[in-house]
Nucleic acid binder design. Structure first.
Lengths: 155, 155
DNA sequence: CATTTCGTTCATTTTTCACTGAACACACTA
DNA sequence: TAGTGTGTTCAGTGAAAAATGAACGAAATG
């Protein structure tokens, strides 16, 4: 195996690996592989290259990049003299990745708070236990916000 | 609607709500509902009560409680004079909940580190970008560990 | 204008995974 | 010992999500 082939295989493994990790985080596997491709390559990659390179339909690429764009994890860019869309990792990709998780924790916290409010004063037991539960999500939220801040400072 | 009925409904809504939240975190919905039941009730609940109360098969309860036990989120306890298994929220439930997420982030970080190691020295671009990526998971890991510590201190 | 190239959409297929429920092992009980 | 209650296992089911690919509209090209 030539050195070039070897590197290509390492790249491939990395992309697949991130695909699996993404799946574990509730993202479609292809979205993870798209992100991994962009991270690894470090420069704009065309729509067609993504479809061919990952061996998936253009429809799949379309929906994956839409998801990643919405979350501001990747961005669509142009290339002079090429009609194709190109993509690259967004500026604050990792920060936004964390932010998404933080938002979810915040939402869970609010959800529980909503139940607590509805609860009659008499229900002291459930009240205090749900409070602990809500606090749990609040702590996670704060930790993630802090993590995002750290990522931001690191730049 | 009587006050008792009203409270029962709030309890029900809470349990369903947590089921959905759990789903969003990659847990089976029933597991979330089991946990919510134990949190709300605040005392040991029997295997049969869980199955009847949630309206699901005993097989589902069995696998859900196994999952939650493995992660030390709930624990199985006995009740004198009753052959049934009882369950209650584990001591460090929330801490262990966070710990599970931290472990996943740690694993992702190690995974990427594995790829970095395989990468030839020549590949400076991918090397530095993967490093940033690995660092991202490392920051999350640290933030979650910190959150766990906070939960611990709060006791 | 006709043709080609794009990316999106959406009906359909595929896959995945929670959940079911029957069969089972085990332990009490009468 | 037969009978009952209890939890686990696992093959099968069903529903939700992911992925496909054909059809389509838009835009560039000749």
């Amino acid at each position: 195996m030539t050195k070039t082939e070897e590197i290509a295989q390492i790249r491939e493994e990395f992309i697949e690996k991130i695909g699996v990790i993404a799946q574990g985080e509730g993202l479609p596997r292809i979205a993870g592989r798209v992100l991994a491709t962009l991270v690894y390559d470090g420069q704009r990659v065309s729509f067609g290259e993504l479809a061919n390179g990952l061996g998936v339909s253009r429809g799949s690429i379309s929906s994956s990049v839409r998801l990643l764009e919405e979350r501001q994890i990747i961005k669509r860019v142009a290339k002079a003299g090429d009609r194709q869309d190109y993509f690259e990792v967004a500026e604050d990709a990792f920060i936004n990745l964390i932010e998404t998780s933080a938002v979810r924790a915040r939402r869970a916290c609010k959800d529980i708070a909503g139940t607590i409010e509805k609860l009659p004063q008499s229900e002291t037991g459930p009240h205090s236990r749900l409070k602990t539960y809500a606090n749990f999500y609040d702590v996670i939220d704060a930790a993630l916000v802090d993590a995002a801040k750290q990522m931001r400072d690191r730049k």
